[in-house]
Amino acid sequence: MIAATYSIPAILVFATSALLILGGAIGVISVANPVHAAICLITTLFGVAVAFIAQQADFLAAVQIIVYAGAIVVLFLFVIMFLGVDQKFHVSAEPLVGQRAFAVAGVVVTVGGLITLMASSHWVSGATSVSGSPLDTGNGNVKQLGTAVFTTYLYAFEVTSALLIIAVVGAVLLARRERASTNEEVDA
């Protein structure tokens, strides 16, 4: 009955992305080794990219693979290897009494509320947006996204460049060893 309403390929793509996303996410929170968690994170990010492609966000899917799975996860792996913390953590250790039970309760309430909200709302029955430019439903939307980012959201785009500079300087300051002070001590 579902297959009669929606096309089989769309359902298959959704099932694939859901499997990748949820399997990877559960792997991230359940495996003991941080390296394995990073590999599971790649699975989730790939699943999200599949969902992006299925919803006409081609450019974002490419960025998702290149920036997230390529750069951010490699950064995670670099820090894991650099610190040498790729031994197992005790997943079952629970220093705070009842922490896990409270976490389960909070997450169930939040997700249950979200799903109830989504199920009881009629998001798609309204008119399409009048504020932004309408979405092309053709092949690719790179041009459209570029136009939006460099016209409507130009100030936000410029602010992100400042944010990235601040982040780079902050990371360098945080991760740098205090060489100058030790040299002074040696000289004195």
Binding site: F59, L60, Q64, S129, G132, S133, N141, V149
Partner: peptide
């Protein structure tokens, strides 16, 4: 996709 507005995808760009 549902609302046919590119603003959502621009937001994802900034979130990234």
């Amino acid at each position: 996709r549902t609302l046919g507005d590119i603003g959502g995808q621009a937001s994802v760009f900034f979130v990234m």
